[in-house]
Amino acid sequence: MSHANKCHIINEDINGDMNMLGINDPQIWLAYLLSIGSALGCIIYGLMHWNDTDPEEEN
């Protein structure tokens, strides 16, 4: 990630507190990032197992 991008994501709010994506409470930006991450994780999981064959399958 370039320095410019980093500066864009990590900002200061009105009180000068550091924050991530404009959110200063780690409990919230963590939830925000985990939501996106888990959705992406689902896509990756689905793709990785697209052609799985289950030995126990009847088909």
Binding site: S38, L40, C42, I43, Y45, G46, W50, D52, D54, E57
Partner: peptide, 17 residues
Amino acid sequence: NTTSLKRAVLSGGPFIF
């Protein structure tokens, strides 16, 4: 089959998001 369930995860996650 189980593979159908795994494939469904691909669209299910982004949909809920």
